[in-house]
Amino acid sequence: MKVLYFAWLRERLNRASDEVAPPAEVQTLADLVSWLRSRDEALDYAMADPSIFKLSRDARIVPWDTPLDGAQTVAILPPMTGG
Rank of each mutant, 00 (worst) to 15 (best):
A42I: 07
I61E: 07
F6A: 00
D18C: 14
D44N: 15
A48L: 11
D58V: 07
D58W: 05
F53N: 02
W8G: 07
P67S: 01
P22W: 10
T66F: 02
A42M: 09
V20M: 11
V74Y: 10
A24L: 09
S38Y: 06
L32A: 10
R12D: 06
E11F: 08
E11A: 05
Y5L: 11
L13R: 03
K2N: 12
W64N: 04
K54W: 06
L9S: 01
R10G: 01
K2M: 07
A30W: 02
A48G: 13
V26S: 02
M80Q: 06
D18H: 14
G82H: 00
W8D: 08
T28M: 05
V62F: 11
A46W: 03
F6W: 00
P50A: 05
R15K: 14
A16Q: 15
D44H: 15
V3G: 12
W64V: 03
M1I: 12
Q27A: 10
L29F: 14
R12Y: 08
A59W: 13
S51N: 02
P22L: 08
D40W: 11
Q27F: 07
E11D: 12
I61W: 00
G83C: 06
A71D: 03
M80K: 06
D49L: 09
L77N: 01
M1E: 10
P23V: 05
A71K: 03
E11C: 05
T73R: 09
A59T: 06
A24M: 09
W35F: 06
P23N: 04
T66V: 03
A71Y: 03
V26R: 08
D31N: 14
L13G: 03
L77I: 02
V62K: 10
P50Q: 06
V62T: 09
R57G: 01
L36D: 03
D69S: 12
K2R: 14
L4R: 07
L68I: 11
A42Y: 06
M47W: 05
Q27P: 04
I76A: 12
D69N: 15
L9A: 00
Y5N: 08
W8C: 00
L55D: 04
K2P: 06
A24P: 14
L4V: 13
I76L: 12
P23W: 00
L55S: 04
T66A: 01
M1G: 15
Q27N: 08
A71E: 03
Q72E: 10
A42C: 08
S17G: 12
D44M: 13
L43V: 13
L29Y: 14
W8V: 00
D44Y: 13
R12T: 02
L36R: 11
V26W: 07
S34K: 09
